[in-house]
Amino acid sequence: MIDAYLTGISPRGDALIRATRAFDRGRASGEELEAAFLEDAGALVRLQLGLGIRYVSDGMLRWQDLLRPFALGWRGLEAGPLARWFDNNTFYRRPIIVGEIGSDGGALGPFIELAAMPPGVDRKAVLPSPYAFAKLSEDRFYGDPAELAMAIAGALRREAESLIRMGFSYIQFSEPCLAYGPPKPRDEVAMALEAISAAARGLGALGARTCLYVYFGDASPLLPDLAGLPIDDIGIDMTESDPDPDSLSALPADKGLALGIADGRNSLVEGPREIAASAERALGAVEPDALFLCPSCEMEYLPRSVADRKLEALAMAARALGGLEP
């Protein structure tokens, strides 16, 4: 399988931006705002279907940031002060852990645009990795990073099971912390992998393909560690990594690869030929079980028109490599 897909929060379109602004200023009703969300998600879903993309995302347009639905929806958490989202000019509310984490698996209900996704379509959902979630939070309760990460993993697992019941057949865990900055100590990597495994193990038996998408840093030195995860696909941010086929061959033959070749943080739109050539160069003789071409990270740092063009280029590149059914 060779395909393309989105990897995180998409930028809102101009009309939705205007609607959110009007709502905040008391110049638009809740119903008008709801209609704007549905319209924008619908446009994004139609774009993906039109391009022949198999695993379709609703664009996560309601998500204020990757952690907010859980900071608001789980027991034991509060949405804390604004903090910088890695090295971007974008900010998130740092979750504050104030008690034992609890989830009934329903945190994402208000954030998913189910009505925009036609029945019978393969749906892709994105969740934070439990390790990144723990690193990006302020812990005032557990006092032990491993215990916190495992508690988050348990709650994420319940959300993933709910998503599968809602008809999602692809679950991506987004991991922006593991490769960001200086290399992490071995015991920390082990702790991260244990929490990710706890969240993801067995989701395949419930009917979902799974991915760990590692971004904002070079994932290639971590590939031998990631090879053993109970996860179908490993994602690599190719704007931060320059992996050679030797390092990719560390992955077992039954693992799929997601290559984040389109830069989600810069407006220069990569050409389909350029994307296909990058993928071929990285793969060499490696033939993964599945190959997904994707943006390097969530594309919310780009205006929507640019993000849409990048997705089109990714789909065209996947087709040039022999994938995608129109």
């Binding site: 931006i17 602004r21 974008t90 919310e300």
Partner: peptide, 14 residues
Amino acid sequence: LGEVRSFDNKYYRK
């Protein structure tokens, strides 16, 4: 090129 989000419903022209 257009507006991008700073946080929540706040955006800036980039």
